[in-house]
Design a binder for these strands. Structure first.
Lengths: 219, 219
DNA sequence: CTAATAAGTTAGATTATACTAACAAAATAT
DNA sequence: ATATTTTGTTAGTATAATCTAACTTATTAG
């Protein structure tokens, strides 16, 4: 049995690791607003339960089982958000807090019914994919930046595969997850892409970089 | 702040006291399947919070505030049951477990929305009244047995006012809350009522008794 | 009315989840 | 390359909610 508290840690770890495959005690601590020693001991506990790979001083990863459990919680969260908006008439900015609570309800039938009433959606209206009932996240809703066309407007969602060097490179360019990019041009010779975002009116990204950036088209 | 656990104790106490105004540690212990010492210390805690009247070795009662809090939880439970049946297509026997969980969601907007979508119901399809948003239970859905007609079929819901003697009398006749009674005849002379229920094909209840029994008509 | 039974209480232990203080390791900056 | 800062860990404490064992009070049955 996984407690509500444990579920929150799994979800946090899932979301934090989605981009780079691993996360730190410190990151979880900040996200959940829980002190590091508490996070630390919870990670050991989840490790005993086979949900997290934990080794002293090393980055945290979810096990396959942990990933599945986390994805199923996120599935419940996103289905709930969809339901609240589509069937109950809530605005998108009102539903998160409610979904944070309903995601912990234990009732497969309840969420199956929601899914059915919603017509088996695969993405929520923000474009975030809804994992299926086996916890498998369709990643098709995110595409690699090197498959986009001139004029596309996209949001940076994930980096895959990830490396410290790449993350430092992106960080130096002020490219963060969630950044919206406009594709200004694509150089046919080497497939480098010129984009604008934030304060940058023009930045060139090599194909080596664009092949690792997962983005979600806007609109 | 009232914890989910505390809410469950309040609800149990509310339901147990609904008929006779008070309940015992033992009754709560049985209903919640929690040992008596645990119930005892929780009652002290709820007493400190002003929700329960607790005195050693005396019966338990809810304070006005405790009654209101409990009624609001029951409101959330019954609205949820209604919603699950009316709007999501669940059968009545499937909704209790789900409602037991959703009743603890903290979100006035969520339940207000449900209420609105259901058209502000005042009783659930079992005939149980739904307390209003101030925790006031309309008790009109229960009537005294002495106001019924020959041929009525009713369920015994509460006893008001209650006394030890009356409860012993009812107990001796195997008359419990929830018992379904069929009214066979009414004697005009003294208003005594002959009923059948369970294994008893015929039992006579005096008007003194029938004037204290609150019942819910079936159908 | 007393003896037996049931109900209520107290004391102390246990588990889950959080914390602070203190120390250790790793990363960073000069 | 070392000093400083950040991150991670350990140890010990706190609170909520549960339990068992032992004792007390109240109720019930002869």
């Amino acid at each position: 049995m996984i407690s509500q508290t444990e579920e929150n840690y799994l979800k946090a770890l899932y979301n934090l690791t989605y981009l780079k495959g691993e996360a730190s005690v410190n990151e979880i601590s900040k996200r959940l607003e829980i002190k590091m020693p508490t996070v630390n001991s919870m990670m050991k506990k989840l490790s005993e339960k086979g949900l997290v790979h934990y080794e002293s001083y090393k980055p945290l990863k979810l096990t396959e089982e942990g990933k599945k459990e986390a994805a199923l919680i996120i599935r419940k969260h996103r289905l709930t958000e969809m339901y609240l908006v589509e069937k109950m008439g809530f605005a998108w900015d009102e539903v998160h807090q409610i979904a944070e609570q309903i995601e912990h309800i234990h009732s497969p039938e309840f969420f199956t019914k929601m899914d059915q009433l919603l017509g088996y959606p695969t993405v929520d209206p923000h474009g975030s994919p809804i994992p299926d009932h086996n916890g498998v996240m369709r990643s098709e809703s995110y595409i690699f930046l090197d498959t986009c066309k001139t004029g596309d407007v996209v949001t940076l969602m994930a980096v895959q595969p990830s490396s410290k060097e790449l993350l430092q490179y992106l960080s130096a360019k002020d490219l963060e997850l969630g950044t919206t990019l406009t594709i200004l041009s694509i150089e046919p010779f080497d497939n480098s892409i010129t984009v604008s975002y934030g304060d940058r009116t023009s930045a060139v990204l090599s194909s080596k970089v664009t092949a690792t950036l997962l983005v979600r088209p806007i609109s």
